[in-house]
Design a protein around this nucleic acid. Structure first.
Lengths: 156, 156
DNA sequence: CTATGTTGTTGGTGTGACCAACGTTAGCGA
DNA sequence: TCGCTAACGTTGGTCACACCAACAACATAG
């Protein structure tokens, strides 16, 4: 096993992106059994927590592009996990609603993610895990405040 | 600005992958000026630190697939940043060597990454940054020990 | 009523991380 | 020495995720 360039071990961006690779590997392996992927979890979680909403606000809440929301909702609707219905009050909008099947899928995915967490942070104590989560949360909050303005960036 | 599902804020895998998104955005923006991307930096860093080596060991050290090494080395060689020469001692191997231009490019990229670091960890104090880096490093070390065995996984 | 902006949708792009297969070459055991 | 195995480079895919550009339909502010 040849060691990686030590130069990289000092770059937080490297540490984070590489750790993200491992996280995605674990999450993907777990989700594979449930025929789902990351986008699905995000959308379902938002729908359960905040109730039905349009695709646009769904995308804004989950940091998912409008066009990717279309695809993910197609897949979710195809599996009966959400329902997409035109909004009578605003005929541009599609209101997306989570179904009971969707809620049960979400619960299963939650279990998977909790299991992944243990594998991912295995070498850390409970205290260290909390500390890490707190630090990551603060950094993430900071950047969430200055997103690429999301939502509407039409070419015009 | 609609808030994200709070359910996600408790999942380390979510925090890490999302933070990685921001990190990649910053890194990409920085690298754009230098006409380079992540793979290039990794390979150049390994070549400078460990000297010339074959493409296979290069890939092993950087956690880059053999086929992706081929592409990246093509691009790097096209820009004169590395040289690829057949190894007379083992005619299967190509020995990759970093050039002076490569070293100078590497130095520029290093500067970019150091700048990114400040943006990425802006809300943290110097102590907290060190702590975060230490925690990430430990977790990463743990997972590096059990990679998908890398290197050779030929179909046969 | 017109201008502006939002929504859903289509159809792309780029990066990173893979995997499968093939020809070539090395090296080892029988 | 022959043959098998394994490694190397290379080609040519796949998938997930993050994005961007443009357009028609619709809503709304002026």
């Amino acid at each position: 096993m040849e060691s990686p360039p030590s130069r990289l071990s000092a770059k937080p961006s490297w540490l984070i992106t590489q750790l993200a690779v491992h996280a995605r590997r674990l999450v993907f392996a777990g989700f594979a059994e449930t025929d789902a992927r990351g986008y699905h979890y995000r959308l379902l979680a938002a729908l359960e927590e905040f109730g039905p909403m349009s695709q646009a606000t769904l995308g804004r809440r989950c940091s998912v592009d409008r066009s990717d929301v279309v695809n993910a909702v197609n897949e979710l609707a195809g599996q009966g996990l959400v329902e997409r219905a035109p909004d009578p009050a605003d005929r541009r909008r599609n209101t997306v609603t989570i179904t009971d099947a969707g809620r049960s899928r979400l619960r299963r995915m939650d279990g998977v993610l909790d299991g992944v967490q243990d594998d991912l942070l295995a070498p850390l104590s409970a205290d260290e895990r909390r500390h890490l989560v707190a630090l990551l949360g603060r950094v993430l909050d900071h950047h969430a405040g200055q997103l690429p303005d999301d939502g509407t960036r039409d070419g015009a």
